[in-house]
Structure formats: C-alpha cells, structure tokens
C-alpha cells in the first residue's frame, strides 16, 4: 500500500516564493532577505519558513521547506536539519 503522505511529498512540486526585505540587518546585505525576526507567540511560520532553535530567528527560503531539508542560520552560524515534530509542525534540529 502506498503511503499517501509520502506520495504527496514526492510528487507535489514545491511552492516558490518571492522574498522581500524584512528589515532584518544582522547579516551581510545580500543575505538579509533570507531571515526575519521572530515576533513571539502570536507569530506564524509560512511554508517557506522555519525557526532557528538556537537564536530564534526565522529562516526563509525561496521554495517550500520540507522535512529532511538542510538549512543554515547565518545570524548564529548554526547548521540545521528540518524535521516534522510530533505535533505535525516543521522544526529545525541543530547538526553539530
């Protein structure tokens, strides 16, 4: 039997996103659009975003982020791997 979730993740093309400046200024200029400040408990993450657990900056991609993706948090220089948590949300884990 095919896993419908697996089927979806492999067959569905990733959504693309146009990244605009967010006012984040803690990295060199050409990388600034890939980050934004986390606004706290009322904030929500888009499909192309994941929260860095080390420094609490939101990492943004020009395409939809999925479990297994590797991302880099330039503000704290952490390498991260995206996983799906028990609650179903995407989370980043630090790769030491």
């Amino acid at each position: 039997m095919n896993d419908p979730l697996k089927q979806l993740s492999e067959d569905t093309p990733r959504q693309r996103f146009v990244l605009a400046e967010t006012g984040f200024n803690e990295v060199p200029k050409k990388y600034r659009k890939f980050y934004r400040r986390w606004q706290g408990s009322g904030d929500t993450l888009a499909l192309n975003e994941v929260l860095c657990p080390v420094c609490r900056v939101v990492i943004r991609s020009s395409r939809e982020i999925r479990p297994g993706d590797r991302v880099y948090c330039m503000p704290c220089m952490s390498r991260l791997v995206v996983i799906r948590s028990a609650t179903g949300h995407l989370e980043a884990r630090v790769a030491y």
Partner: peptide, 20 residues
C-alpha cells in the same frame, strides 16, 4: 541581542562537538 545570537551559536556549535 544581535551579538548574543552569534555568541550562543558558537557556544552550542563548538561545544556540541567537543563534549562528545
């Protein structure tokens, strides 16, 4: 706060490998 992001990042990343 922006400076502290780098400092805690260094602490975790460097010690995460050294403690092993």
């Amino acid at each position: 706060i922006a400076d502290e992001r780098r400092h805690v990042g260094f602490g975790e990343n460097r010690i995460g490998s050294l403690i092993k």
